[in-house]
Simulated assay, not measured.
Amino acid sequence: MEQPVRLLLPVDGSAFTKRALDFLLDRLTWWREPPRVDLLHVEPPVGTALARSYLSREVLDSYYAEQSERVLAPAQAALQGAGLDVLVHRQVGEASRRIVEFSLEHQNDLIVMGSHGHTALGSVALGSVATKVLASCRVPVLIVR
């Protein structure tokens, strides 16, 4: 029996993330079997290392979990509502690097991501995270604008 396609959908809560999610949901017929979706949120580290040294691990973990849940919950609900097998992942760090590492570690077949995130400028053709993922990833990447 053939394994379902394993997609990676990085999410940051931006409008472009929503477009990538909608794009994916509108094209579920592209696959014979419903794809398995790894839903990934990468939260940037709080402040500087010095600032983080003043916060307890519990406080930091709670903050990161809260921020990730706020972003992940709507996407997870939409994907599960469409009957998809969804695995939720939370990481902290530099988004493009974490996305590339994750896709290789989890053997994703395709990354579906928005062209821009929260920090993107409207006049830029492609956001910095999307550009870095395209430049350094061996996994095919589908960019949704």
Score class of each variant (00 low, 15 high):
residue 7 L to D: 07
residue 67 Q to N: 08
residue 74 P to T: 07
residue 73 A to P: 02
residue 83 G to Y: 09
residue 72 L to G: 11
residue 50 L to E: 12
residue 4 P to D: 13
residue 49 A to D: 15
residue 56 S to Y: 04
residue 84 L to Q: 14
residue 53 S to C: 08
residue 25 L to D: 01
residue 26 D to A: 13
residue 73 A to R: 12
residue 12 D to I: 10
residue 56 S to F: 05
residue 20 A to W: 10
residue 82 A to E: 06
residue 18 K to V: 03
residue 86 V to S: 02
residue 90 R to C: 08
residue 17 T to M: 08
residue 69 E to L: 13
residue 48 T to W: 05
residue 51 A to E: 13
residue 93 G to D: 01
residue 51 A to V: 04
residue 79 L to C: 13
residue 65 A to E: 14
residue 67 Q to E: 14
residue 79 L to D: 11
residue 31 W to H: 12
residue 72 L to R: 12
residue 53 S to A: 12
residue 40 L to N: 11
residue 21 L to Q: 04
residue 92 V to S: 03
residue 51 A to G: 07
residue 24 L to N: 03
residue 85 D to V: 09
residue 67 Q to Y: 08
residue 9 L to I: 07
residue 2 E to P: 00
residue 70 R to E: 10
residue 24 L to H: 10
residue 29 T to V: 14
residue 19 R to A: 15
residue 35 P to R: 02
residue 12 D to P: 13
residue 51 A to F: 09
residue 41 H to D: 05
residue 70 R to A: 13
residue 68 S to G: 15
residue 26 D to W: 01
residue 13 G to H: 06
residue 7 L to R: 05
residue 83 G to W: 11
residue 57 R to D: 07
residue 64 Y to H: 08
residue 82 A to C: 09
residue 47 G to Q: 02
residue 61 D to N: 10
residue 70 R to F: 02
residue 26 D to Y: 01
residue 16 F to P: 08
residue 29 T to E: 15
residue 11 V to D: 02
residue 65 A to N: 12
residue 61 D to C: 03
residue 74 P to E: 09
residue 22 D to A: 11
residue 35 P to Y: 05
residue 87 L to A: 15
residue 80 Q to C: 08
residue 10 P to M: 00
residue 55 L to T: 08
residue 48 T to L: 11
residue 21 L to E: 04
residue 77 A to D: 12
residue 66 E to R: 06
residue 15 A to M: 02
residue 40 L to W: 11
residue 72 L to D: 05
residue 7 L to A: 07
residue 43 E to Y: 00
residue 92 V to T: 07
residue 52 R to S: 03
residue 57 R to I: 03
residue 55 L to P: 13
residue 82 A to S: 07
residue 13 G to V: 04
residue 8 L to Y: 04
residue 81 G to Y: 05
residue 48 T to F: 09
residue 13 G to I: 04
residue 33 E to D: 14
residue 13 G to C: 06
residue 86 V to C: 02
residue 65 A to K: 14
residue 16 F to S: 14
residue 48 T to E: 06
residue 57 R to F: 05
residue 23 F to V: 02
residue 66 E to H: 05
residue 86 V to H: 02
residue 17 T to I: 03
residue 58 E to L: 01
residue 15 A to Q: 08
residue 34 P to Q: 09
residue 5 V to H: 08
residue 74 P to G: 11
residue 9 L to S: 08
residue 16 F to E: 13
